[in-house]
Amino acid sequence: MTNDQRHGSRWQDRSRMTRPLEILVSALAVGAGFGAATSLVNALSHNNADLESSAYTTSGWSIAEIMSLLLDSGWAWAGLAVAAGWLVTRARESRPRTLAQGGAAAGALALLAATAAYSIVDSIRSGEQIPWYMSEPAVWWVASVVLGAPLGAVGACVKRPGAIGLLARLTVPVGAAVQMVVLPPGRNEVVETAGKTIVWTVAAASIGYIVVRYLLVERRRRSLAVAESLPSTAGIARPRSSSAQ
């Protein structure tokens, strides 16, 4: 083995060792950023709300409140875990089982980091004396692992071809649309309508784009498969016409 080959082998081994660490750091950073941003937007929404006014309570709204409604929704936190799982696909690991395991770990870690950051920012902002990790109910910590792991595994399947990849890409927009029916957010009818309109519009556009793109890719793939299955005409001499004889 030459020196260049040894150097290349060492570089590949080092790359394999650093990629999981990069994914871990990315998942934690994305989760912590999301949790801190959600807490800050919630605080901004609360500070701008005049809940002592009956008119504002029944029909008032603000941009900060709409942003808070979107960020602090179940589908958004689920989307965070899916996005963290998608980060695993950057590891260039082709084995689906390994990708799914890495995605599950990334999804759980991202939700744990988001919950921790949300709790820390809330504790600092409110000046609570209790430990930050006790400011949130235990159910959120458990849910971060129980729900984050499968959602992260779904995110790791986003780039896969075929029906599995399609279902993985549809998870977040379909989940968001369903939540608007089952558990619509908002403290009054105006806020609820605004939230549902935004989510349904974005979800419908996303679903349409994902399905159309999937159909185009599948059509192209089938066309290539048919073309490759046809016998090649290269090297076959054309029959001479009678006039040329």
Rank of each mutant, 00 (worst) to 15 (best):
M17H: 07
W141S: 00
L40D: 11
S39I: 03
A32N: 13
V154M: 10
L28A: 08
S45G: 03
R169H: 05
S206A: 14
M67P: 01
T2F: 06
Y56F: 10
V121H: 11
A244M: 11
G175Q: 03
Q5R: 12
A84T: 07
S242R: 15
N188A: 11
P131A: 11
W11S: 11
V172L: 09
I124V: 14
A227P: 13
T171I: 08
T38Q: 12
V182L: 10
S15H: 06
L167Q: 03
V178W: 12
S62D: 12
I236C: 07
A176C: 07
R92K: 15
W86S: 11
A234V: 08
V142D: 09
P231I: 05
V154D: 00
A108P: 05
V88F: 09
L183A: 13
A205V: 09
L99Q: 15
M17Y: 03
E128H: 15
R14A: 10
L21Q: 08
W77Q: 01
G152E: 05
R97Y: 13
A205I: 08
L24F: 09
Y209E: 14
V212Y: 11
T201F: 04
L216P: 02
L80Y: 04
T38R: 13
Y133I: 04
S123Q: 15
L44S: 11
A156P: 11
W77G: 01
R219H: 07
L70S: 03
P161D: 15
A156K: 00
N48L: 09
W77N: 10
R238Q: 12
V199M: 02
L166S: 05
A104E: 00
R97L: 15
L111P: 02
G155S: 04
W75G: 00
A177E: 04
A78N: 12
P150L: 08
R160F: 12
R97G: 13
I207H: 02
R16H: 10
L167S: 00
V191E: 15
S45E: 04
L87P: 01
E228N: 12
P96T: 04
G152D: 06
A49T: 03
A227H: 08
A105S: 02
S123W: 14
G33R: 07
T98A: 15
G208D: 06
L109N: 01
N47M: 05
A76K: 05
V226N: 14
Q101S: 14
W200I: 07
V191A: 01
A237E: 15
A117C: 09
S54C: 02
M134F: 04
E218L: 08
Q245H: 14
P161K: 12
V154C: 08
L216T: 08
L21S: 02
A108M: 03
A108C: 06
A116R: 06
H46G: 05
K196H: 06
V82F: 13
Q101P: 10
S229E: 15
E189V: 12
L147T: 00
M67Q: 00
A43N: 05
G127I: 01
G155F: 06
L51Y: 13
I23K: 03
G74V: 00
S243P: 09
A204Q: 10
A234E: 13
P137A: 06
